[in-house]
Amino acid sequence: MANAVIEIENLTKYYGSSIGVQNLNFSVSEGEIFGFLGPNGAGKTTTIRLLLNLLYPTSGTAKIFDLDCVKDSLKVREELGYLAGDPNLYPTLSGKTFLDFIDSFRPEKKSKYRRELTTRLNLDAKRKIKQYSRGNLQKLGIIQALMHKPKLAILDEPSSGLDPLVQLEFYKILEELKKEGKTIFLSSHNLSEVEKICDRVAIIRQGKIVAVESIEKIRHRSIRVAEVFFKAEFKKEDFKFDNVKIIETGEHYLKLQLPSSMINQVLAKLAKYEVHDLSFTTPDLEEIFLQYYEK
């Protein structure tokens, strides 16, 4: 396994008596695109702010590049690019002046990549930030986070506000950075986005990690939906298993929800009947996500 860029151990944050996040444990490896999935209020932004030392943890530790996110925060931030969930980027400045300002914090890392990003994301940097649309504001936020090619980019809901074409270009940019060995940690509630670009994903619910899996594993471990059309009548009782849920039945029709581990047993039962049509559907991440939330 590649080196861990982010290591989180028992990380907990309380806001007074209410839980922000509780006992988070996971790590993110070098060169991977890691998705942090959960609905609004689940604790995604709290976790990100703890990583950036914008918040102080109640207990537990978070390390980036093997450096403590609280004690060594300044060193950590030298190699970090960050896009806030709702980027507020000095409205009175022009896009260019703002990027110059951010660039000035890392003078040794100035590169032509900023210009490339501006062109690829199609941003007019000469205009004042207060005149920017939500989409342009997001583009500017992405550029400032990635322009110095950080070892780790932490992006909070990065594609929100981007139109589909720009989103595709953005995913390409992330893939290219990954190929260069950069690590991307992105939070999202856009499931198809995570499915498309992430290697692994952590699912967070009510401040607690529900699962940390590769996208592939999540799909494989997860449920299937089977639809069967029989040529004649069938016995519903034949398909009653502990882990199998009968969703819908008709005279010649059966719809089941089953874990992939039960496929063979269901097929064995089906062999007793003459089947007109049979299909297994792999659920999309949305359904998988709901499955985790129903636990």
């Binding site: 702010r49 950036l52 030392n53 914008l54 300044l74 060193k75 931030r77 030298e78 970090l80 960050y82 806030a84 709702d86 980027p87 507020n88 980027l89 000095y90 951010i102 914090f105 890392r106 400032q144």
Partner: peptide, 11 residues
């Protein structure tokens, strides 16, 4: 909300 961006820089 600009403090968040400022504090994500090495300062």
């Amino acid at each position: 909300g600009t403090m968040e961006t400022l504090l994500s820089q090495p300062i």
